[in-house]
Amino acid sequence: MALLEVRDLRVSFATREGEVRAVNDVSLSLERGRTLGLVGESGSGKSVTSMTMLGLTRSPTTEIAGEVLLDGIDLLGLSDDELRSVRGRRIAMVFQDPLSSLHPMRRVGWQVSEAIRAHENVGKKAARARSVKLLRSVGIPSPETRIDAYPHELSGGMRQRVMIAMALALGPELLIADEPTSALDVTVQAQILELLARLQEERGMALILVSHDLGVIAEQTDEVAVMYAGRIVEHGPGETIIGSPMHPYTLGLLNSIPHVDGPRTERLMPIPGSPPSAANLPPGCAFHPRCAFARLSCEGEVPSLQSVESGHRIACPVVAQDPSLVSASSP
């Protein structure tokens, strides 16, 4: 059985502008020790998807449907108290901006220790000693003194290491890293990604890497799911998605990335238009107004994922029928 199985997840928020459908019919599965990359622009629903797994989007104005199965247990059906025992202990999360994600008025040691003491009955001293060990394991130099620092006294990379230490405190089976490097300097980004890869290997945990940056995703994921307007539009092995994408949106994403080592002759091809508002999605395939291959039929039904080759699925009947359409404009 897969460690994590998401089935037909739907999340919508009631707002003044009406119902915002942030996530629509998302299904995923992830085996122990494997890495899933979740790609998409801001507003594509990738963060909402990952936060919903931890119940962080629960509120009176949010409607959540579907299933999120962890070892066969539906997390969406758990009470708040039951879910709390899963949070941090079995599934942990690292967020985008470590400065705003750490409490500004608490020492980092306090914050890491709190994560331990939330689930285990250990004394303050023992929790502190474990926090020092954790900080050392994520590569923070002289953790014995850094443990008493406030977040603003650390660099961005060190702060994100603290966040990671906090997330790993109880040895979770699944780590969700939501844009873990987006707020960091480029040089630090690579270090944090390496750290995540090393820790994952050491601990054998599953990892969901959420990012808008295909470069980050390509680096170290087994599987990639591309999201657009709250839906998964392409799903497959990492090298397939990066090497020979089939969905027009994924293609557009890859073509709009500058390649440092490639020939300079090709021009970048940005995707025309802008992503639709989740409160007002276009009918049919939400990408059709921006799509170069759009047909009249694209405005009709919302396309579902269909297999194009083993383990590779796309939500585009036009390309699925005639794969030669995209082979010409492949990156």
Binding site: L56, S85, G88, F95, S101, H103, H119
Partner: peptide
Amino acid sequence: DYVRTARAKGISERRVVIRH
């Protein structure tokens, strides 16, 4: 964001409100 982090740790809502 830091209250969201506190919730993600799995501490009680009461503690989230008071201590964070």
